[in-house]
Structures are given as C-alpha cells and as structure tokens.
Write a protein that binds this DNA or RNA. Structure first.
Length: 556
RNA sequence: GCCCCAGUAGCUCAGGUGGAUAGAGCAACUGCCUUCUAAGCAGUCGGUCCCGGGUUCGAAUCCUGGCUGGGGUACCA
C-alpha cells in the first residue's frame, strides 16, 4: 500500500515543474523535499502542504498565488476529492469519500500485513538490547531497555527490515569473576564454611539466596574440588541460573531473543586477536603507563581509551570492538542498533571512532540512548526493593502492574525523556488507564462481531459508509502505515502509543454515533457495511497493540 | 570545568526535520446507560511553551547566553 503523503509529494513536485514550464511560475530552484503534513483541524482537509509558503521568497510571489498556480497544474489525483488553497498559502487536500470506504476492504484484505511499509528493503539489522550484566535479576532500568528494544525490533520488522534480536552476555570481564567469587563464597557459607565476600563482590541478599539454592540442589560436592575449579563450577551454574531468570522475566513481558551472544566467544574464537591485528596495522595502538591504548583522539574522539590494562587483561572497550567487528564483518549485519541507558552515553563517541578504525561506515551503527526511569508510588520515589533489598526488579513490577501496562507506559514516552513510572497510576487507576482504553476498544469490537454472527455474510457494501464518524474512523485507520514509518525512521516507538489512543478514540466515537447491529430489517445493508468497518478496525487495533507487544483481549 | 538529555496545563507527557487557532491522558466540574461492553461518550475549566537576546515573512521548534533537574566525565561494566 503506497503512502498517500509520499504520492502527494510527487504530485506537487510535478505540478511545480509544469507550472514553471508553462510560465505560471517564475524559474527558481525547486525544493528537494516537499513537506506534506496532517492538518490539525478537519476543515483543513486530510493532507496539507505549506510548501508555497517556503517558496514565496524564491518566487517573489504571494504564497496564495503560488498555491493557486500549483493547484491548477496538479495531475489528476485518483483519490483526492478537492484541492483548495487556504491562507496564508496552504494547499489542502481532501480525500474522496468513496475511496476512503474502499480502504475498509483493502485493510481487511491486507490483514496482518496492514501497517507494514518497505523502508528497509530486507536489510539485515540487529537490535541489541538489555544486555545487563548477568550478576543478578533484571531491574526496572532494564525494563525500559527491554520494552524500547523490542518495540524497535517490531517496528523495524513492520518497516521491511530483517531483524535479529540479541542479548549480549558479559561473561568474560572482571565483573563476572567477582560474581563467580561471591557466589562460591555464599555457597560455601551455606555449609558453614568460613569464607567472606571479596571487597569488589556482590553483597546483595540475592547472592545469599542463590548460594543457598545451589547448595540445596547440588549438595556439598563442590567443596571437595580445588578452590579454583569449585569457583568456576559454581559460577557457571550461577550464570546459567541468572540467564534463565532473565529469559523468563523477559518472556513475561513478551520479549524473546534470537541470539544470546556470549562475550567469552570473542576470545575463544580469535575475534579479539583479529581486531588487535587490525588496530595495530592501522597504527591506532600505543603503549604507555603499562597499558595498551586506543588512540581515539586521533580519530576525533574525546579521549584515548585503554584496550589492554596494565595487568594484561583486555578492558571492556576491547570486547566492544571485537563484538562489533563480529556483528558487522563476521555476521554481516547491514545495520546495528544498540540500546543503551543514559548512564552509558559517555561511551557513544568512542564507538564511532572504533567504527572508523575498523574501516566501517559509522552510519551503520546507531546507539539509541534512553533516559533513566524513576519509580514512584503515589508520587513518592521508591528505590529499594523489600524482597531483594536491592534495586526494584523487573519481575516485581510485572507482577504488580501486569505486562500490558508495563509495556504501554514504557513505550508511551520518548526515549529522550526522563520518565516517572508511577506504580499506583499504572495499577490502581486501571479504570481510567489508557492501557485499558485501547484494549477496551478491541474487546468492544469483538463483542459486536460475536453479537452479529447471525447476520454475517461478507456482502456488505462499504460505499454505504458515509457518516462523518465512519469516515473519521477510516481516516484514523489509514494513518497506521505513516505512524510505522515515522516510528521506524526516528527509532521512536512512542508514536505508536499516541496513535493507539487516537484510533481507539475514533472507534468509541463511531460506536456512539452509529449503531452497528440494528433490529430493523430495513437497516440490514448498513449493518453489514458497518460490520466490515468494525472488522477492519479490529485488524488495525490488533496490529498496533501487537507492535507494542501488548495483548488484544476479546473480552474485558 | 567539559559533554549528553530534558524544562510545554495542577500532575504525567506528545508536539515527524521552522508554518494555520498550542495537544492528549489523568485530576477538577456538568451532563448521558430499558437496544451491539458506561474500562465508554459529549462538554467545561486549565498555558509567560524555564528566562534573556538573536536569526526571518513566521520560532515551543533553529542559534547564543543564563537558570533548574537528570546522566556522564575510571586501567568498572
């Protein structure tokens, strides 16, 4: 399905060219992009272009005069009923009612594929998100990451990309060793051994619980091993346990991964050696202060970065370079999107210098940075969890407010905006909650369709749909592809949440104005037409809910 | 100090890359259920778009200087 605004852009461009050729407009350089927008007020039509306002200076003519000239030279537009010129110089386009009605059947025919646009042309894109250190349960910060990342993945799929979802498991660094060490200590303590958690270890209560759990499940057999081996064995079990927990938590909010990529494989499979060779050959490495440095400043970076620490171990940035080499060169992704919390934004510049050092186009990498979430309850900030004595976990919040509410609220805010997530608002005020508002529209539709089963038959004539509320609903439904495009281009899923509410609102207004199933046999034809409209609306609502990873309940 | 994000209605936030009259939800107030789901609908109230200056036909949007909040600025990740 072609996007109407894109078609209008082309038509206006043609009209400009024609008008100039015929002398209706003076010669001037035509703009590369013609702005086409959705006007605010219905009387202004379905689409509008302010392009003539911009051209006023170039053409040295009054904007309205330019608009009249353009309007006079527009090609025949199959689905446009009227083109009008409105002061101070807008071109307003109103869609033909019969064409709008036809779209009801087009949407039903498109089904699940309605709302998809071909922006990506099948390009391979990877969305890597969450990737929290596997040292404990996922907390609320990761929840925003998960919801954002998964929504991006869904949107990009709808926008024609071949998407892969990936979780990067940091199982190689010093943090992992601290985790292994701590877990072994807690395990040994469960048997009364005199061990103490290292200074840089994990002191939270969840480690105690995990140590005890491992002790229960596996007995004391690891205590007989040499300590190094025991730490390794217990640590591995703990890592698996944490990853299983993360997988479960993420699935609870509808997030599934295609790949769990372990950092350690970069060192096992020679990727790290390969990038070191490339960097050395490129002359990007230098040695001083006992460490090996990446000279990022030479590529415009803000500061140099340590690659190999003075103790001989590779730093986190070394892994990052090898990891992205693997993504682009080994696995061949055309484009990679990493979703990071604002607490990592300081590392953005070095990622681009890294791309250059590897000889890769930096434009292929996008870092989506989201601002941190503060959790509130009744206006009061909550920091600590009662259960873990630590950060509030993702699991706790899902259990309290539900997966749909969590996904909706976290999707509904722009990633740039530091947001408050109020638990009481998400849960207790469920009656007046936008989450249910949208889902309720879907349930209402299902209810109508159930009720109308007796007079089903797909011989409804959509051209009987002429009521303003019917056409307003169709207009809203037709916006979905544009919204998907906007969200995909801007990597901004929050547009979906706003659109979903507007679509639901248009449906509820239709429901108020137009009785679908009538008891009067004389209305049968209209009823059948409206049933088609309702069925089409269901398709669109279902799609937008799905893009947000939310369920579309049939009964509420 | 320097870098990134934000500041829009009482609250939470939208305002695709400068355009028409500033938007939604919640909160407050008025009405509407004997017919398909009232978790709904219609309406009212509510604005110094943080504050200066600049750019131009035109600024919530762009530039600049401040102020406020958040996050960075490690041989942690």
């Amino acid at each position: 399905m072609t996007l109407i605004d894109q078609t209008l852009q082309q038509y206006i461009a043609v009209a400009l060219e024609r008008a100039q050729r015929k002398g209706a407009l003076p010669a001037f350089e035509r703009p590369e992009v013609i702005p086409v927008e959705r006007p605010k007020y219905p009387e202004q039509g379905d689409y509008a272009s302010p392009v003539c306002l911009q051209l006023a200076r170039l053409a040295r003519m009054a904007p309205t005069k330019i608009a009249e000239a353009v309007a006079a030279h527009l090609p025949e537009l199959p689905y446009v009923e009227a083109v009008t010129v409105a002061p101070p110089g807008y071109l307003n386009f109103r869609l033909r009612k019969a064409w709008l009605a036809d779209q009801v059947e087009a949407i039903i025919a498109a089904g699940e594929s309605f709302g998809t646009v071909d922006l990506g042309h099948g390009q391979k894109v990877q969305v890597e998100f969450v990737s929290a250190n596997p040292t404990g349960p996922l907390h609320m910060g990761s929840a925003r990451n998960a919801v954002l990342g998964d929504a991006l993945a869904r949107i990009l799929e709808a926008a024609g990309y071949a998407v892969q979802r990936e979780y990067y498991v940091n199982d190689a660094g010093s943090r992992m060793r601290a985790f292994y060490e701590t877990l072994y200590v807690r395990y040994a303590q469960a048997f009364g051994r005199d061990e103490s958690v290292p200074e840089d270890g994990y002191h939270g209560p969840h480690m105690v619980a995990m140590g005890e759990a491992l002790a229960r499940e596996h007995g004391d057999r690891f205590l007989a091993l040499p300590r190094d081996e025991a730490v390794e064995a217990v640590g591995r079990l703990g890592l698996q346990r944490v990853l299983d927990g993360a997988r479960d938590d993420l699935e609870a909010i509808g997030v599934r991964y295609d790949c769990w990529f372990h950092e350690s494989t970069l060192y096992r499979e020679g990727t790290f050696d390969r990038i070191m060779q490339i960097l050395r050959e490129g002359g990007y490495l230098s040695e001083h202060d006992g460490a090996v440095w990446f000279d990022a400043t030479r590529l415009g970076g803000d500061k140099d970065e340590v690659i190999i620490r003075s103790d001989g171990s590779p730093g986190y940035f070394a892994s990052d370079i090898a990891y992205h080499y693997d993504k682009f060169v080994v696995r061949g992704f055309d484009r990679v999107i990493d979703v990071w919390g604002a607490d990592h934004q300081g590392h953005v510049p070095r990622m681009f210098t890294m791309m250059e050092a590897l000889g890769l186009d930096p434009k292929r990498l996008t870092l989506v940075i989201y601002q941190l979430v503060t959790l509130k309850r009744g206006g009061e900030e909550v920091r600590l969890s009662k259960r873990t004595g630590d950060m509030i976990t993702l699991r706790e919040v899902v259990e309290e407010v539900g997966a749909d509410a969590m996904r909706f609220f976290l999707t509904a805010r722009s990633a740039d905006s530091q947001m408050d997530f109020d638990l009481d608002l998400a849960k207790e005020q469920s009656d007046e909650n936008p989450v249910y508002y949208v889902q309720y529209a879907h349930a209402r539709i299902c209810s109508i369709l159930r009720y109308a089963e007796t007079l089903e038959g797909d011989d409804g004539d959509v051209h009987l749909l002429t009521h303003p509320s019917e056409l307003a609903l169709v207009r809203q439904m037709l916006r979905l592809p544009e919204v998907v495009r906007t969200a995909a281009e801007g990597l901004a899923p929050h547009h979906l949440a706003y659109y979903a509410q507007e679509l639901a609102s248009a449906f509820h207004a239709f429901y108020r104005d137009c009785r679908v199933v009538s008891s009067d046999p004389a209305d049968l034809a209209v009823s059948k037409a409206r049933l088609k409209l309702v069925a089409a609306c269901r398709v669109v609502l279902h799609k937008v809910l799905d893009l947000m990873g939310m369920s579309a309940p049939e009964v509420m």
